[in-house]
Simulated assay, not measured.
Amino acid sequence: MNIALSPLFWSLALCGLATTAHAQSNAPLRFGVRGGLNLSTQQQSVGSNGRRSSVSNDNLTGVHTGIVAEVPLAGDLSLRPELLFSRKGLEYSYSALGQSIGYTDKLSYLTLPVSLTYRVHAGPAALVLGAGPYVGVLVNAERTGSAKVLSSSFTRTGDLNIGSGDNDDYQTVDAGLNFQGLVEVDRVFVGAHYGLGLTNVQAAGHDDDNYRRNRGWEFTLGVYLAK
């Protein structure tokens, strides 16, 4: 739990430092919106008694949307807190001897990334590079499973349980690091973010051999509401 909460601690600490630094700056705050496409998966390991193996999961396509703030600090340094709705998850499939099984997990998060950014000017455009912690709260989880056995095919969709109990499927909190690279022209920006999950989001089997960690790209387009 301490590991899971440490990105939250750093997010709040960065916001506090930014408030202090911005109080000494004359540059205005900026607010905007952004949204786009997600490509997400999970780093997964299964095992017992110190023996583990990796599970190969495919990417799930989703979306994200939310609000952005830019807090000028000093020079070209800024702090960029965001509040986003983001669809993460994975797709898994396995087949052998003409039989197959698979499932798709769709995980809906409210995420709070807080990034320290640096702006490199290039004529009318600017390259914005940043990194920082993020914390996400899982608000909905759904699994669609399918199987083909002999000549029969089956598909079933249902909600997954969220929490930390024995009967739960996914943890409520996800946390990790966020990296970003954006190209900004006037009030419009476009670019990519990468989320590196550091916590085990699997509710059952919290050990070194059984874990799931979110990984994923966000390809985004956004606009500031003022220059």
Results as ranks from 00 to 15, higher is better:
T117W: 01
H206A: 14
P7Y: 07
L17Q: 02
G98W: 09
G62Q: 07
M1S: 11
S86G: 01
Q43C: 00
L79D: 05
G75P: 12
G66S: 09
L160Y: 02
A4F: 06
V137W: 13
C15E: 03
S56C: 04
L29S: 12
L8R: 09
V185H: 09
S11M: 03
S100K: 07
V190Y: 03
Q99P: 01
G130R: 08
A74F: 10
R143E: 13
S100A: 15
W217P: 01
R87A: 10
F189H: 05
V223S: 13
S152Y: 12
L127N: 00
N210G: 05
T65M: 11
A27S: 13
R34E: 14
G16F: 06
M1L: 09
S11F: 00
G216I: 07
V114A: 06
S56M: 05
S146V: 03
F85R: 04
G98N: 03
A69R: 03
T65E: 00
Q171Y: 02
R156K: 09
G191V: 09
A141E: 09
D166P: 10
R143T: 12
L60C: 05
G136S: 04
H22W: 13
V185Y: 13
Q180P: 00
Q180A: 12
S151I: 04
F179W: 08
L84F: 15
S11G: 14
T155E: 12
R51A: 07
L182G: 00
L77I: 11
G16M: 02
P72E: 09
G50S: 11
G158D: 12
V114D: 07
L177Y: 05
T220D: 03
H64N: 13
G136N: 00
D58T: 11
E142T: 08
A23F: 03
L73H: 10
T157L: 10
Y211N: 10
R212A: 12
M1Y: 08
V68M: 11
T41S: 15
V55H: 04
V190R: 02
Y92A: 12
V114F: 06
N178F: 02
G32Q: 07
Y109L: 03
V55F: 04
A18C: 09
S40V: 10
P81F: 06
D174Q: 02
F154T: 11
A126E: 04
G36W: 13
L127A: 05
Q99M: 08
D159N: 14
L37G: 09
K106M: 08
R156H: 10
W217Y: 11
L97H: 13
A122E: 04
L97R: 15
V139H: 01
A175E: 05
T157W: 10
G176F: 02
N57W: 01
V63H: 07
